[in-house]
Design a protein around this nucleic acid. Structure first.
Lengths: 191, 191
DNA sequence: CGGTCTCTTGACGGAGTTCAAAGCTAGTGG
DNA sequence: CCACTAGCTTTGAACTCCGTCAAGAGACCG
């Protein structure tokens, strides 16, 4: 469990033996059932979450009351409402397990203390955030650049295994199209 | 010039007197004419850019050959193609001045070296990246949540001075709507 | 097997784009 | 300091992508 996280960190920065204990003590380990919530709209996003196993989704409810998914997180991904986490303010997002999942969680207080004690992690989290920022820029470009049809085709070809993994209506929501339209696209583009 | 940057950094972390020299030596100072390019599609994004004065935009060309703006940066903002910068690969974005601007630029090599020598900056840039990530999550939520009409109204009311500052066709592009439609919305919602 | 989700199909409608043309504004050079 | 021009903005008409609605067909689970 912790090994997954430690390994991931060590892909980016060097850790001392003594750091490992500090890291393990700073995170809370959580086992989640399918559909369990880590965060609900209106609550404070207290923690950053690392997915050791399973799959989470982040979503909110639109003005019309429809679930809108903005992000998935699978093994080795971090997820949080960053604005809400950093300022410890009310969140507009929900974070929920969509499979049985194993999660490591760290709250802001522990996070600040840990980064103080292990400067290498300051770098690790900077790199994580910058990478996520790059991915986010790329995603925004796609949204502006491509038709919904192209978005579907591109995603299907880029992440075929993930398309299998989640229900279609969630994929539709994440890609920003209606389940009905996704269905017609699937029919049009059978292989 | 450097003062602007130093002040901004000191809003977030403490610097030693000796750090200031290191910082000044790591950045290149650039004065840009209106319409000057810092980065073009197909080139490598060599630097992170800090806007001390003026205004930059980031844009790309869609499949149809239309300019699509994804980001603006004004005083005290950072801008870069993060994915391209970190991996020093070919960029799909352009970065261009849309006013006479004063810029501080740092390339990846100097950036890595500087962060090695001044650990406080590791934290500063982590905070910057996490904040940008929060803003990006919020923006994505808006795109999925609101109609183009609402996006325009919300932006106009949130950043009235900025709406004055850039030409309408750029604002339309940034907000993801056609200049014609923005024009009709403006007419509909005169105050 | 019954009931509740999920996915498909088709008809219809509307938010927003595209195209074309005319009006406006501001920068430039004479 | 004025006149010209290029490029920005407005207007309106036609069109289209894609969402909404409604109803049926599977699929999964107790």
């Amino acid at each position: 469990m912790y090994t997954k996280l430690i390994n991931h960190i060590q892909d980016y920065v060097q850790l001392q033996e003594s750091d490992l204990r500090l890291i393990e003590n700073s995170f809370e380990m959580m086992s989640l059932q399918n559909k369990a919530y880590l965060l609900r709209e209106g609550q404070t996003c207290r923690c950053l979450y690392f997915v050791a196993k399973g799959c989470l989704r982040m979503h909110f409810y639109t003005a019309a009351g429809v679930e809108q998914i903005t992000q998935f997180a699978i093994e080795n991904w971090w997820i949080a409402d960053y604005a809400g986490f950093m300022r410890q303010t009310v969140s507009e997002h929900n974070i929920q397990a969509i499979e049985k999942s194993e999660i490591l969680a760290i709250n802001l207080h522990a996070y600040d203390a840990l980064l103080e004690e292990v400067p290498a992690l300051e770098r690790y989290f900077r790199i994580m955030a910058q990478r996520a920022l790059g991915a986010s820029q790329y995603r925004l470009k796609q949204i502006y650049d491509m038709s919904k049809e192209d978005i579907y085709l591109h995603f299907r070809d880029s992440f075929p295994e993930f398309v299998q993994r989640v229900p279609q209506y969630m994929l539709a929501s994440f890609l920003g199209l209606s389940p009905e339209y996704l269905s017609t696209l699937r029919k049009k583009h059978v292989r």
